[in-house]
């Protein structure tokens, strides 16, 4: 018997539920290809000219969530960090919109989203490159765009990558939970994912939009995603052959990936010993290996504790690329010691 998994149903969080609970990566269909038809496009602008500025969701897209820098410091209560998956893209969108780094923006998945603005507002779209339209007219991606009151901003399907970031001058001003406006898909904290007709308040702009000559977009990595891995804490749970497989094997990004973790398909990593690990704390970027042997790289909404061994950790700076890797992308892990 180990920790709290005496029935052998430990799923990596070693929690009081089971694998039937549906919290596993993939459960929220974060990578859904479903192209939600536009709805409510003839809805009058909500609150235009009256009260605080707000967004009304016209087309929520496959999965669009409010994200800021997350809520670190609560892992001991079972609350994960959450926050934007592509931190540099989120930071750039805020900077170009004249916002502080901690303002909340929208994070889209695959097919963007559309919102109607109740007041004129400056908007910036970064992250996955995509067509951006205001009332049907193409406007710039990666630059401050003025959206008139009552207009519909449509952030289109990603041309490459997965997740676009939509910052509004003043930020998305939903009530914070434990100091953050981020939606954590695992714990359920923070504002619900966008739904058609939902209204999101905007804050007051606090600075002029910034200008950038060229907005960086690394694009899909040539030859696939390469992730450095600092080995440990549980690399000794794996056979030497498994560590060679980790270093030399080619994995692919699984379609079951989501904000909780980047799942891989490919060779299985063999354990040196059977048995289970009592629950232990998990970090962002942890490469956890469940019983099927396929590594999962923990992203922002990862569980705070887990019972499957972590073979290594991908440094945080490398996770932005992981967050933009579409299913099927080849993945190589490059183990580094120290």
């Amino acid at each position: 018997m180990t920790g709290s998994g005496p029935d052998g149903r430990t799923r990596g969080t070693d929690g009081p539920a089971s694998e039937a609970e549906g919290r596993a990566p993939g459960a929220d269909h974060g990578l859904s290809e479903t192209d939600t038809p536009a709805t409510g496009t003839d809805t009058p602008a909500t609150g235009a000219g009256s009260g605080a500025p707000a967004l009304t969701v016209v087309r929520p897209g496959a999965l669009t969530t409010v994200q800021d820098l997350g809520r670190p410091g609560h892992a001991h209560l079972g609350v994960g960090r959450s926050g934007a998956l592509d931190r540099p893209a989120h930071a750039l969108a805020n900077r170009l919109a004249g916002n502080p780094a901690g303002h909340a923006a929208l994070e889209t998945t695959v097919d963007g989203c559309a919102v109607r603005t109740s007041a004129a507002v400056t908007v910036v779209v970064t992250g996955a490159p995509c067509p951006v339209r205001v009332d049907g007219r193409p406007v710039a991606w990666g630059a401050a765009v003025r959206v008139p009151a009552g207009a519909v901003l449509d952030v289109g399907r990603a041309a490459s990558g997965l997740r676009s970031y939509v910052a509004f001058a003043g930020g998305v001003d939903v009530p914070p939970v434990l100091g953050s406006r981020s939606r954590d898909l695992l714990s359920g904290l923070g504002p619900e994912p966008l739904a058609a007709g939902a209204v999101l308040p905007l804050g007051a702009p606090c600075g002029p939009p910034a200008h950038a000559d060229a907005v960086p977009w690394a694009g899909p990595p040539v030859g696939g995603l390469v992730l450095p891995v600092v080995l440990g804490p549980r690399d000794d749970w794996f056979t030497p052959a498994a560590l060679r497989t980790l270093a030399r094997g080619t994995f692919r990004v699984s379609a079951a990936s989501n904000r909780i973790g980047l799942r891989t398909e490919g060779p299985a990593l063999e354990r040196a010993a059977d048995g289970e690990l009592p629950s232990e704390g998990m970090v962002l970027g942890a490469v956890q290996v469940p019983p099927d042997g396929r590594p999962v790289v923990f992203l922002a909404d990862h569980p705070t504790t887990g019972g499957y061994p972590v073979v290594g950790v991908v440094p945080e700076a490398e996770l932005a690329a992981a967050a933009q890797a579409v299913p099927g992308t080849p993945v190589r892990f490059v183990p580094v010691r120290g």
């Binding site: 005496p6 149903r9 929690g15 039937a20 609970e21 001991h76 209560l77 504790t305």
Partner: peptide
Amino acid sequence: AFCGFAPGFGYLTGLPAHLHVPRRATPRT
């Protein structure tokens, strides 16, 4: 002893060993 699984879920220790029980064979939905 620690928290996890869900916000606010605590793993409480203090049961003597003879009161430890296995999980249900079939979890509830």
